[in-house]
Amino acid sequence: MNPPFAADLNLRLCHSCKLSCSLDQSPDSCPRCGARLHHRKPNALSRTWALMIAALVLYIPANLLPIMHTSSLYKESSPTILGSVVQLWRGGSWDIAAIIFIASIGVPVTKFLVLTLLLVTVQTRRNLASCRDRTRLFRALELIGYWSMLDVFVAGLLSALVQFGVFGVIEPRLGILFFGIVVILTMLATLSFDPRLIWDNNHDHE
């Protein structure tokens, strides 16, 4: 015997304070915190799509443009993300290269792939196991989302710290801004996705 759905009981969950509100008493807003009540996050799918596409578009300049400009006495360089990874790898510090690669390439690309997968498959009928997998994927997505900001922090820290005039100056470049926007957009996209949608088409329990 499956427990009843909230909709069956005419209940809705407040997004803000997670209070179960009865539609009979307060049909419009949460009686405790006053937030507006929705059955699901409004426009979840189209918002997620929009934000993800924006992030995808901006991910192109984020990777093509240099993220930093380092100038020292004998050398000037303005590497892109991949360029700096290659540089570090060749320089022997493969560990740092790996971290930066995972944080700036691996994580965003994973996010895009997972979000696309979820968005595409959310409306199709699935069995229980696959729905569980998708939920787990979504939780993982939330978890790793902010690690991509590592790059932005590194660039910000370096350009704040390394200001030695002729001997060495590091300045941020446009690429890091785009990269930051990409990370924020992907996080917003993850936020605007409602994982309950995964289960809405699952009727195995019925």
């Binding site: 189209s46 918002r47 929009a50 596409i53 578009v57 901006l58």
Partner: peptide, 16 residues
Amino acid sequence: GLSLVWLVPIVAVLIG
């Protein structure tokens, strides 16, 4: 029918 959120990718495309 179209959400305002679609402005975000449009702006991104414009920037690109």
